[in-house]
Simulated assay, not measured.
Amino acid sequence: MLPVIIDAKLCKKDELCVHECPLSVLTVEEKGLIPTVHPKKTNYCINCGHCMAVCPTGAITLTAFDGQQATPFSKEELPDSAAVETLIKTRRSVRKFKKKNISVQEIGELIHISAYSPSGHNAQPVSWTVLDTPEKVYELGKVVVEWMEEMVKQKNPLAEKLFLAGLVNAWKKGNDAICRNAPAIAVAWAPKLGITPQADTIIATNTLELAAHAKGYGTCWAGYVILAAAYSTKVLRHLDIPEEHMAHGALFLGHPAVRYRSIPPRHEAVAKEQDGKFIFHARPNTH
């Protein structure tokens, strides 16, 4: 079965799809003919959708998506650069949440949006484990704390560097500095072997974070969960992450209990020319 289907009645024969295909899957045998799939590149298609996106008449469908059509949009629907800048600058790491759950359906919508983030070779290797109640998040926190206690007991240098003993003591006193009493968590994972699984997972998580912010949800990167997952098979099993897979991104999600009203400053990136290259430092006194 061919990966790309072109409707002859709608095709304008402008060859835009041919020139846009990143792997040259589409070709034209002669000027004025309808593009076809190159016979030697049938299996090269990565279903990125560039051909669909560039076609002005909607003549193209991808077999992998069961005939679904591309969704047209206009420039007027896009946020201007100021709106995008404001969205990015107003994103905060939310560590205090309302006692109000966020449903798995709501999180699922965000995960679907994150599927539009870039991935190496458009492999889209990222899967997600979602815990949708504070009780489930707390149970995960207990498993993470068990790992922390073991690290402290072994006198692992990482335990001292990250003050794990203090985090464990705080947890036992009812101060959850690990999971922040979050109503939900979404953990992103991918196969260890792949083109760019770690980058793909982090990019997808960041995309979900911005999508959540745009919808009014609060998020915070679950750094201790990711750290524990890198060392503890028990944490991976608790999250139902298969063998030979690894979690690289995780977000606590919920409704923020605090309203942020202003954008705090950041240092301007300073450029220095070095051997014909420009090196930008976003922090002062950076070598």
Rank of each mutant, 00 (worst) to 15 (best):
A282K: 14
C17Y: 11
V187E: 10
P134C: 06
A271F: 11
I88V: 13
D275N: 15
T207S: 14
N122Q: 04
I226A: 12
L208C: 05
H245D: 02
A53T: 07
L208M: 15
L87S: 08
L227N: 10
V144R: 04
V94K: 07
T196F: 05
D200K: 04
S127F: 01
Q69A: 15
E268V: 11
Y224C: 00
I102K: 03
K161R: 13
A170V: 00
C17N: 14
S117T: 12
Y138A: 05
A222L: 08
R283I: 10
L33C: 05
S74L: 15
K31H: 09
C179H: 02
P191Y: 07
D176Y: 01
H248I: 05
A271I: 09
I263V: 15
L131D: 05
K142W: 04
I34M: 06
E243M: 13
T90S: 11
L236K: 15
D132H: 08
G276T: 09
P39N: 03
H245I: 07
N206T: 14
Y217V: 00
P3V: 09
V258M: 11
V258N: 08
L164K: 02
K153Y: 09
K142N: 11
Q198S: 10
K142P: 01
L227C: 07
A165Q: 12
P56G: 10
I34N: 02
T233M: 13
V54F: 10
S117A: 15
Y224K: 03
H38T: 02
V187R: 10
N206I: 02
P134W: 02
L210K: 04
A159L: 11
L10A: 12
N181E: 09
Y260N: 04
E15S: 15
F280H: 09
G32C: 06
V137G: 06
F163E: 12
V137L: 01
L164G: 01
H38G: 03
I34R: 07
H267Y: 15
I107W: 04
K96R: 06
E15A: 12
C48F: 10
R259T: 15
A82M: 07
T233G: 02
R283K: 11
K172D: 12
E20M: 10
E209S: 05
K13R: 15
C179V: 07
M151G: 03
G218K: 09
F278H: 03
I195R: 03
V18M: 13
Q105G: 00
A282I: 08
L158Y: 12
L33R: 12
P134M: 08
L162K: 09
E15Q: 13
K234G: 00
G174D: 10
V104R: 12
K31C: 00
A230I: 06
C17I: 14
T86F: 05
V25R: 05
T57N: 10
I34V: 15
A64S: 15
F65L: 12
R261N: 06
E135K: 11
G223Q: 04
R266Q: 11
T205F: 06
A53F: 09
P79F: 07
K41G: 02
K40M: 11
I263F: 01
V4F: 06
W128F: 14
G166K: 08
W147V: 00
H248A: 13
P125W: 05
H19G: 13
N47Q: 08
L193Y: 08
V126F: 04
L210F: 14
N101H: 01
I279A: 04
A212C: 10
M148H: 01
T86K: 15
I88N: 02
P157Y: 03
